[in-house]
Design a protein around this nucleic acid. Structure first.
Lengths: 210, 210, 210, 210
DNA sequence: AATGAATGAGCTTTCATTCAT
DNA sequence: TATGAATGAAAGCTCATTCAT
């Protein structure tokens, strides 16, 4: 892997594990076995690394936002969709653990995070509307935006909540449990047609992670 | 007010507004018009201020945990309860905005936060069980812990989420909207008997904030 | 002496001897036997130290600008005046050695230096006009501004010029030689009445430095 | 133009405009569109670039030193001579703006500058002696070295002085004004025979710059 | 209780320079 | 000749904390 990509990957890992504020550029460089100067050759500073990582997530979210209507045609497709999203949040979980430092001194990063959350909000809301239009969900116009934001809130914060309480779980287990949690929030609003005749939801989940 | 208490109160305000990492001990002292040395006379350091604030919240939560069964005898009592809890989270909202810096270097603070969250979790879960036992809620044994954690997740993170997206709302408005959001999560599980014959939920909410 | 004043005095000395760019804040602190943090307790940074030193010179020049008409009533008074000015330039000679670094990144310092030079220019020009009005100098309106700027140019740069060529001279000798040099520039324009009947210029100079 | 020569030319331009300390080797390379490595292929480092530029000026001064007696046979020839020298100082003006950084860490460059100034001093002094021997100048043995050094001091520092106060003038204007300034310093010492019967000095100057 | 000068570790960043290709 | 990634020393600066008074 190129040094630039290694910096991103090592930084992401350190940010996720220890939190942005605990990870100095020197720590990243030392962890990688490169000089601090070299890190600054590839990135203008810590903020640019963070901004690049946010961009990565932005791009993934954009892709998902474009492709989800094709891929989700039934409620059974909603699970893998959720799984993809949760996996993404897990991969970049440092972002949602630390609104403080992300906001902090750099207004550009604050703006980026805001944009990202707005995009996710839109996606969450569009997805629910899509399910309603497919006849899988029954939800009045007052409840839908509430449910949509609640889903996002839980999905964004579940990981750090759970890890704080008990860090023995693997990423896979966390994602799996997170999806289940999200499904449980949607379940009260499902229509009859959403309930698969052949699979129970637990079956689907098992299939998903194996 | 005693200097010690003023330190706590000013620190809390600054932490809430700017985030822990943006607030140095010098800033606190300057804001208060005292010397940095004096601050360290009253507290062993920044971490002790934070720890004391966590303790404050801990104590409030303990009180609530003890008193809720007396105070919540009907679903109509659940709203004021939620309101109290949300107001508490708003008052100490810096804690839930910054798991990073709280965890950070100091394991003692990490432990305190963990204990606090566990206590809140217990309260949330006990409360739901209480409502079930009162016959106001219908919820199977699998869903209840999910709902309980989801309620906590939303209540803890709602404020910072909403403020990041739009900081024009007052604390009162944020609390009110937060409670509504939480009620909307519980609503699907309400029994007929929970639905007040005299008040609509909106009425209750209006009453609550006036 | 207070630490703040010692920082100024040590910085001035180091700046004069080694040039601004060769003197880091750490060098100043180490030379003084204080911690780098303490230096930053007293000054916001290197630039503020420089700015303060420029202010000191500014103030001295302002005082001279106000008082010279009272003090210089004859050409014989011009010598001590010149001596005072040259001594001042010697004391703060780092400023005129290093327009680059003074300009450098900080526009505030560039502005300060510009203002200082403009003030000195005014003083030099006013002084010559004063001597003309006293009937000691004969100089047409075209030549006067030229002579005025030339005097300033020579007085500002003489020290570093001479030191570069030969650093064996003491400050006292440098100032003395500088004054002589300036007088030699003015001499062609002196009127008969300027030439003291009792003293030769050399006599005056000797008296001056003893 | 060869890369080596382009490095010199671009460096000179950047040094003149921004000052040595503000111009890093990376800036030079980027400005030229070459790699930093390539720059170091042609020069051992920044100091060698500076040293080479000093050498260039040294050589020009040497040539002038040798040829001036042939070229300056009348006072009217003194003007073009001055013009040539001033143009040279303008071309390499970064050197006289920044004795600090030139001295700085590298003693070799300090020595080079010293040698250069000594050569210029000799030239200035020889030139005046030449004019005296041609009967154009009348100047006693005490005043001549003073005048000589003063001329050099003014010619070396005039440009940066003027530019600091007002950067609206073109190089041509600066040179022209500089020459006039120098002539004004010599004028008091001119003999009758120096005053051209046909030209006024202003005429000559006009001719010079057109 | 309170002051405020002082400490020192650690952070971000720059830059002249090297070197494998 | 030329590239560009890599180095490492050093700079400016911040901040939690200590301590003599």
């Amino acid at each position: 892997m190129k040094t630039r990509d290694r910096i991103l990957s090592v930084s992401l890992d350190l940010f996720n594990r220890n939190g942005i504020s605990q990870v100095s550029t020197l720590i990243i460089a030392t962890e990688m076995g490169i000089s601090p100067g070299n890190l600054y050759y590839h990135f203008r500073g810590k903020d640019e690394i963070i901004a690049t990582l946010i961009n990565e997530l932005q791009n993934s979210v954009s892709t998902i936002s474009i492709e989800y209507p094709k891929q989700v045609q039934d409620f059974d497709d909603y699970w893998p969709f959720m799984h993809t999203v949760m996996a993404l949040f897990t991969h970049y979980r440092f972002m949602f653990r630390n609104l403080d430092n992300l906001n902090g001194q750099n207004p550009q990063i604050k703006r980026k995070i805001r944009t990202l959350i707005l995009k996710l909000r839109q996606l969450s809301s569009d997805m629910l509307a899509h399910l309603v239009s497919l006849g899988k969900l029954q939800c009045d116009n007052n409840s839908l935006p509430l449910l949509s934001d609640n889903l996002l809130l839980v999905s964004l914060n579940w990981l750090n909540y759970q890890t704080l309480l008990d860090d023995k779980y693997s990423e896979t287990e966390l994602i799996r449990a997170g999806v289940l949690r999200l499904i449980s929030m949607v379940e009260p609003y499902l229509t009859e047609s959403a309930k698969s005749p052949f699979y129970t939801h637990q079956d689907l989940l098992d299939e998903l992670v194996n």
